[in-house]
Design a protein around this nucleic acid. Structure first.
Lengths: 363, 363
DNA sequence: CCTCCTCGTGGAATCGATTACAAGGAGGAT
DNA sequence: ATCCTCCTTGTAATCGATTCCACGAGGAGG
């Protein structure tokens, strides 16, 4: 592969001049510039990013460590992160922790070894010392979605408290009283925050959240399945189950279906994180949607600010409840309402069924 | 951040010795080795991968350019690719082309600039000259899933021909005669191969595939929606629709639902690519499943072979039909069969509903 | 006791860029 | 004509590693 020396030789100038042309430094004569450009063209030269990074001590690369690529929420996040980063002139390297702390460490280490300019982390485990060392060691870092309390790192996340309150009001309004939750790992903020928000919302309705109604999950489908099986085996099983992420929701649905039960007739159901498929499940699933694109953009901007020496901003955006049919039919709608063509969604709507959905802001 | 010089100074040896210890070169005295290791420890030294890459001319990194991260099939592929690569001592950088040729070019260029050791590509557009130039330019490359004919690059892919034939037999057996397909872009191999397989299978049953029954999609949900709307507006709409990937399937379901039609009663439905959610849709969707993990592993191994100078192997694995209920109830099963606990799947089954599924190999 | 090998070690070149510094030439002001 | 600027250019140092080569010490063999 051609190097800068080859270009210099071909253009009859020194490597310094070639470099100046490449970096659009002003003091290069039009003649030299033209000759360099021609040489670059004929040789098909592309600067070696590795060498450049070594010299300039910057890679124009961001690391993104997410907890689980197979989780559509994180996939979407990753996609928007890359988009915004590209707009700001950065590349993104994704590390998938698979909800395993040691894998998270592996990726953080690898990314640090590659001297990425900054790190976007959604910690699978807040206790990993490696990540915190990196932050203290001066690596620009921003937490997305999940964070670690007590560390001086900007946080970009969604606040589901209001939406959870709306959800509980919705469930309560439909007559459900025994409400259970499948929680994420306690080592993650999203793991216990969602439980606390749920517990608090229940209290507002004079309801308790017994331990038996808290399933310990790990944000993976299997744990949702197991927790739900346990719920259903209880002498007094819950009337509605709330899964704290969409993968555990998948597992929970598996378990409910395996029992031969029907949602919402036999049991109400809702999930955190909204994904396109929730419109097409049987029945469509009531979910709490996060503003993923905005989160991604805010996180990248905060990280870029940190890297480029501007003051970064922590951001918290509200999640919102999207009501569908998995908790029961709303009272004000007839049960066997005809579904004609007239109900078709207008063009441009991302999902046709959204016409039936009700969005809640505050009750 | 500490460099190799700092370690050398701390250990009282030269940088050469430090480097030898780091690369476990045999001729280092036990004493020196111990001092270096201690120095590395106290300084928290980690070798700079950028500098190392510049010198050794290898990055131990693979590039993976996929057509769309939001497509669960590719996400899964990416996950397994990273897993296998990690096992072989490589990192992976993912580039998401979003089905846009110019974005694919952007990522290929960026990855090449970073001097990745090899490239795994699922071409969004076979006509992109950049990718082919790279292949001819000597960059180790392997095509996954999609490929470009007439280029000397190993291909790892699934062959859906048999499974499509099984699907058509299944549809025919359920009485469907007017069958339509939502195709992917003609510029991709998977785009036209699936149509050809479908057409051929229809011919075996004496059925034709009129142009009106071929929807031109682009592997994105929206195109599936539009194609399906067009099908349903036909004077003689198809009795069953086959979507060539899971995202177009999502769009197609949106369109069917918007019309107030029911699957499978009003229209039969099937899709290429099986995803976990297909078990929980209304109704569960009959799909053609690809052996994603095996494809990913084979692709990474082929690429590693190429990089490390061994002869690489092209691999083609069969896809297989997974029958659920979206094409109609199988004749030999009662329609309103009771769903008791006895039908629950055994523990350990990834998805509970699989108990109901029938796997076909050949009709 | 001398020679030859082996082993451990350090010096220095190298990878491909960027950039500080010096130097040469052109042009304007005096 | 001389001096001073400004503009352009090249030489060489540098980033942090790896690795070739040379050198000295020490042991084996003659």
């Amino acid at each position: 592969m051609a190097s800068i020396k080859d270009v210099a030789a071909q253009a009859g100038v020194s490597v310094a001049t070639v470099s100046r042309v490449l970096n659009s430094h002003p003091s290069v004569s039009p003649d030299a510039r033209a000759r360099v450009i021609a040489a670059v063209e004929t040789l098909g030269y592309r600067p070696n990013a590795v060498a450049r990074s070594l010299r300039t001590d910057q890679t124009r690369t961001l690391g993104l460590v997410i907890s689980d690529v197979l989780n559509p929420y994180f996939t979407e996040l990753a996609r928007f992160v890359e988009e915004e980063a590209r707009a700001l002139g950065y590349s993104v390297i994704i590390g998938n922790a698979d909800e395993r702390p040691e894998l998270q460490d592996h990726h953080v280490r690898t990314l640090l070894d590659r001297r990425i300019d900054g790190l976007l982390v959604s910690p699978a485990d807040g206790r990993s010392p490696l990540t915190l060392d990196a932050a203290r060691g001066g690596t620009p870092m921003v937490f997305v979605d999940r964070w670690v309390p007590g560390v001086d790192v900007p946080v970009v996340r969604a606040d589901g408290r209001e939406a959870v309150r709306d959800l509980v009001a919705h469930l309560h309004g439909l007559g459900h009283r025994r409400l259970a939750i499948i929680a994420g790992p306690a080592a993650t903020t999203t793991g216990h925050e969602r439980v606390e928000a749920f517990r608090e919302a229940l209290r507002e309705h004079g309801l308790a959240l017994p331990d038996a109604y808290i399933g310990q999950g790990d944000f993976q489908a299997d744990s949702g399945r197991r927790a739900t099986e346990r719920f259903l085996s209880l002498p007094e099983p819950p009337e509605a189950v709330f899964a704290a992420d969409n993968l555990m929701a998948l597992g929970a649905l598996d378990a409910i279906r395996a029992r031969g039960l029907r949602v919402p007739d036999d049991i109400g159901f809702a999930a955190f994180d909204d994904i396109p498929w929730f419109v097409h499940t049987d029945p469509p699933i009531t979910a709490i949607a996060q503003p993923t694109a905005e989160l991604a953009r805010a996180a990248v901007r905060a990280l870029a600010d940190l890297i480029e020496g501007r003051p970064p901003q922590s951001v918290t955006l509200p999640a919102r409840l999207v009501v569908r049919r998995s908790c029961g039919e709303p009272h004000d709608e007839p049960h066997d309402e005809p579904r004609g063509e007239s109900r078709g969604a207008p063009r441009g709507e991302p999902h046709a069924d959204r016409g039936r959905e009700q969005r809640r802001s505050t009750p």
